[in-house]
Design a protein around this nucleic acid. Structure first.
Lengths: 203, 203
DNA sequence: CCCGCTCCTGACCATCCGGTCAAACCTTAA
DNA sequence: TTAAGGTTTGACCGGATGGTCAGGAGCGGG
């Protein structure tokens, strides 16, 4: 992911390892996951894992840094030149799609933050903070123009994160509460969030 | 906690163990936490832990079942006879106060759900689901009366959970993004959530 | 066909983990 | 004061865990 693998075998096995590691790390967190478990899911032997990655931590870090880009991309794409409500709604929709399509990635991230972000502090205090401040400025600008209602821009972003990630991170709870009747909560969630932000931001 | 301890020493040590276990479990999850770590935080020896609790799992279960009551209490207190918006706002406020005052409990819960709720499935599919359905009916009743706007009642409850717990579970991220300038995000968060739900539910 | 390099594995290691146990220590109440 | 019962601990156990290593298997180019 970080460095292009040379051979086809390296490509295939590295991907299999990262895929398996995502499965295991996202469910048990870094300390709760074991190399044996990852190796079994990947269909490789443990020493073979360590042929491709120097350590358990290296696998984790590779996953996290690969994640950061995908994760921040929707916010990056919020265009200052666009129509404000439309841009925000598009951001919410993309973020909700990430939760639906990549729930394990969301849980991996959640696990890392829950544990105090020992391997992501830097990225959070740097890249993430800078991006949020940039986009908060955009939101504030839109508010000054009177094109959306005035609310705390950073908390607005927090609320988008919280509401969308909830469906991935608390997946089990959501499904348990909704029961068998509603196997896919995302269509309803999308409608609900659209209403919520439309009413919150209407001028 | 579940059974009243007889002597003063038992009382004191059991509490110290549960306090330490909360600290460790909430940060590392069940599998990531170790008895040695809990023992060290509690200021006791590992065999002494196992004098008071039969196993690591027993400590975890005790914490979780003790938590369930506190956690559901604010929703229980949403009164069908009260003024709808007032009741919902009170629920949001109480839930946010729980996040502020008991962030470790929130993270313990989040960890458990993230890991597929292996030790809480029963409580979630039973107690929690029943309570949500009961209160969703109340919300639907209020909507039928035209006293609050019509939105999906269960997703409304989800959104309250997501928005309030976010400040406890993603504490590190919130603080990192807000920076040193805003040491306590809760006053602003309270105001923001008040606005959000007022606008969402206004008729 | 063979050589060199990539890929893979069984065996192994030190450490850590949850948990046990017998013995020692401490408190209390008669 | 003493004995009984509650409390604490060092030493230990079997199994898991992250990681190493020497060597074998497989592959690709000449």
């Amino acid at each position: 992911m970080i460095q292009p693998r040379r051979t086809r075998i390296q490509q295939k096995n590295s991907e299999a390892i990262l895929e398996a590691a995502l499965e295991v790390f996202s469910q048990h967190g870094f300390r709760g996951a074991t190399l044996d478990q990852i190796a079994e899911v990947a269909g490789l032997s443990k020493p073979n894992l360590l042929y491709y990655f120097p350590s358990k931590e290296a696998i984790h870090v590779t996953l996290l840094s690969g994640l950061m880009h995908t994760w921040l991309d929707p916010l990056h794409r919020m265009d200052p030149e666009g129509e404000p409500l439309r841009e925000i709604m598009a951001y919410v929709r993309r973020k909700l799609e990430l939760s639906r399509d990549f729930p394990r990635e969301s849980r991996l991230f959640a696990n890392e933050i829950l544990q105090g972000a020992p391997r992501m502090r830097e990225a959070i205090e740097g890249e993430l903070k800078a991006l949020v401040e940039e986009k908060a400025a955009v939101l504030r600008f839109w508010m000054d123009q009177g094109r959306i209602a005035r609310v705390h821009p950073v908390h607005l972003i927090f609320s988008i994160w919280a509401l969308t990630q909830h469906y991935a991170d608390f997946d089990v709870q959501v499904h348990a509460v909704l029961g068998e009747t509603e196997p896919d909560p995302y269509p309803e969630a999308g409608l609900y969030l659209e209403t919520l932000f439309a009413r919150l931001l209407a001028v």
